[in-house]
């Protein structure tokens, strides 16, 4: 006799339950697909560096070449963060007393490295070679954006595998004359993909999509 019946007022939950069972998967999928995508998680990453080095000032205003500091970029996989000694080439003369440079002077004096914070971080199971890309006419700007306009360096591209493959499958828009690779402000006179196709042939660019190209 004493069978439990849900009270009538609880019927209100029936449509709610129905809606939730459809909406929750959609919401969760959406949350993971968009919320957890590198595009949203990594783009805009802008950590504070121990020394407030301004690329906008050095590379932009003063017009220093990228390779003055990142001098191994054409021959190695790493673009190599410069040693303290590179800073001191100028800063033994300029802004000798600046507070902002205290850490740099300390590093130069003690030989202890400055602990810079990595901005563009690929997973450890990915091998990326800067030199290979530069020799194919891919500019710094394609991946790093207008660093010459950044006060504090930030990540502007997702650096995800899909993003890498987009370019490996269709590299033409990103290929420019090798002479302009380090000129971040350069704009093509003709449509980038037409010039790119020409240069691709000339440079023999054949981007690979094999797993082992990046994963070994």
């Amino acid at each position: 006799m004493s069978v439990f019946h849900f009270p009538r007022w609880s019927n209100i939950f029936r449509p709610i339950l129905g809606i939730t069972s459809i909406a929750a998967p959609v919401y969760l999928t959406g949350l993971f697909a968009f919320g957890a995508s590198p595009e949203n998680l990594n783009v805009g990453y802008k950590p504070v560096q121990p020394v407030p080095f301004s690329h906008a000032l050095h590379a932009g205003e003063l017009g220093m070449d990228c390779r003055y500091c990142h001098n191994t970029v054409q021959e190695a996989n790493h673009a190599a963060i410069p040693p303290t000694a590179t800073c001191m080439n100028c800063h033994t003369q300029l802004h000798k007393e600046s507070d902002a440079l205290a850490l740099v002077r300390e590093s130069a004096a003690t030989g202890k490295p400055i602990q810079w914070v990595r901005v563009h971080d690929l997973p450890d199971y990915v091998r990326f070679d800067h030199s290979a890309h530069l020799h194919a006419g891919i500019s710094c700007v394609s991946c790093h954006g207008r660093v010459d306009q950044m006060e504090v360096v930030e990540q502007v591209e997702p650096l995800s595998m899909g993003w890498c493959l987009d370019c490996h499958r269709n590299p033409e828009p990103n290929i420019r004359p090798k002479s302009e690779v380090f000129n971040l402000a350069w704009q093509a006179d003709e449509a980038p993909h037409i010039l790119g196709a020409k240069l691709r042939k000339e440079y023999g660019v054949n981007p690979q999509e094999d797993c082992s190209t990046c994963h070994r």
């Binding site: 191994t72 790493h78 040693p83 130069a108």
Partner: peptide, 23 residues
């Protein structure tokens, strides 16, 4: 966190000539 762990880069204070990191 959902992103990679924060990593530091510690370049040599005075890199010898001809020394190319990572090669």
């Amino acid at each position: 966190s959902c992103t990679w762990k924060k990593e530091n880069i510690a370049p040599l204070a005075d890199r010898p000539e001809g020394w190319v990191p990572g090669t």
